[in-house]
Write a protein that binds this DNA or RNA. Structure first.
Lengths: 184, 184
DNA sequence: CCTGAATACATGACTAGTCAAGTAAATTGC
DNA sequence: GCAATTTACTTGACTAGTCATGTATTCAGG
C-alpha cells in the first residue's frame, strides 16, 4: 500500500510523519489512556464521585478493617500526598470515608472506607466491569494478554517509579523507597 | 510463593486477583500512561512550560503560517474549549503564541506560534525524542509495532471520539473528515 | 431586513495534581 | 535526655480539565 498515514497522524492532522516509532507510540499511548479515562469517568460520575475518588475507595476497600495511612494511599496511586489529603477531605465530606489520627504513631492519619462508600462501590461494580470490557472489546483474548505484557514491560523500564528493585510489603511504615524525587 | 501475582497486582498491593483480564488491562494502561506523563513532564518542565502547553505549541507549529482557531486546537487535543482558552492565555503571557480575532469570521480567535515558541520547541526536540525512545526502550521494534497496533484498535473501538461511523484509515490521503463536533 | 437559532469563544465555580513551605510527632546522636 | 533530624502530613499558590452560563457574531427563514 502506498504510504498511508498512521491512525494517530489522522487524529492530530499532522502532515509530517513521526520522527520515530517511539514518538508515535508515545502519542498513541497518551491518547488511548485519555479516551479510557473519559469512558470510566462517564461511569462513576452519575454516582457523584470522580474517578480518583473511586480509586481511593477501591484502595481503602482492599485494605479492609485495618485501614491505611494517607501516604500509603498516595503510594499506591503514584501520587503526591497533598492531592490525596484533599481527595480524602472531599470523600469524608460525603461520608464515604472515615479518618482518625493513629494512636501508635500520632503523625499518621488512618483512613477507612465507610459503609456508604462500600455501598457505592457495590453499586458501581458491574458498570465498571462492563466499562472495562467494553473498552477492551476490540482486543482478542490473545491480544489482551500481549497488551498487558507490553504495558508491564514499559512500567518495568528505566522510568519505573521504583527503578531498580520492586518494593516489598512491610507492615508498618513504607519500605524506604526514595520515590526518586531528586532535588525536591 | 505459590500463585504468583501479576505486575499490576504487585504495584497496587491488591490481594484479590482482578475479576477480569479487561480490568487488569485497564489498570495497566492507566498506570503506564501516568508514568509516561511524568517522564515527559520532567523533560519540558525545565523549559518553563507544562506538557499541555508543549502540546499546543506542537499543534500550532504544525499549522504553520495560517494558524488555527481555538476550537480547532481543542479538537486536536480531545479537550474542551475552556481549558484551551486558558492554556492559550498563559502561552500568550509568555509570548510563545500570538492571537488575533479573525477578519473573515469575527467570532473566531486565530492563534499562531510565536518565534520564541518555535525556538523553545527546537530546544526541546532532541530531549523529547530521547524521552520517548527511553520510555519505549523495553520494547523491541516488533513489540513497538504491535503495541501501536493494539492502541489504535482500542481507539477505533466503541468509545472512539467519533464513534458513530468509524473513520476508515484505508486508502490514500485522508478524507476531509468533518471533525465530528456533535452537539456541544 | 429582522428575528431566532446556532457558533465560537470567555468566564466562573469545582475537582485535581504539583511544588514549596509549615507543623507536629517520632527517631537518632551524643 | 535533649537538640537535630526525619517523617507524616497540611496548607497555600499555581496549572489544568470540566460543566454551566454568558456574549458577540453569523446565519437561516420569513
Amino acid at each position: 500500500m502506498s504510504r498511508m498515514r498512521s491512525a494517530v497522524q489522522e487524529e492530530i492532522q499532522q502532515r509530517r510523519p513521526f520522527s520515530s516509532p517511539s514518538e508515535e507510540a508515545v502519542v498513541a499511548l497518551v491518547r488511548t489512556a485519555d479516551l479510557l479515562r473519559r469512558a470510566l469517568t462517564d461511569v462513576v460520575e452519575p454516582q457523584g464521585i470522580t474517578l480518583q475518588q473511586y480509586n481511593v475507595l477501591r484502595i481503602l476497600r482492599g485494605a479492609g478493617a485495618e485501614g491505611l495511612p494517607t501516604l500509603e494511599i498516595a503510594g499506591r496511586m503514584i501520587e503526591q500526598a497533598p492531592g490525596v489529603t484533599r481527595l480524602l477531605d472531599r470523600l469524608q465530606a460525603k461520608n464515604l470515608v472515615r479518618r482518625q489520627r493513629s494512636a501508635e504513631d500520632r503523625r499518621q492519619i488512618r483512613c477507612w472506607i465507610a459503609p456508604a462508600g462500600l455501598e457505592l462501590l457495590t453499586r458501581l461494580q458491574s458498570a465498571m466491569q462492563e466499562g472495562a470490557r467494553g473498552f477492551m472489546a476490540p482486543l482478542s483474548e490473545a491480544d489482551l494478554a500481549s497488551f498487558v505484557r507490553l504495558l508491564d514491560a514499559l512500567r518495568a523500564g528505566p522510568f519505573a517509579p521504583h527503578s531498580a528493585s520492586h518494593v516489598a510489603v512491610t507492615g508498618t511504615g513504607r519500605a524506604p523507597v526514595p520515590q526518586n524525587k531528586e532535588m525536591k
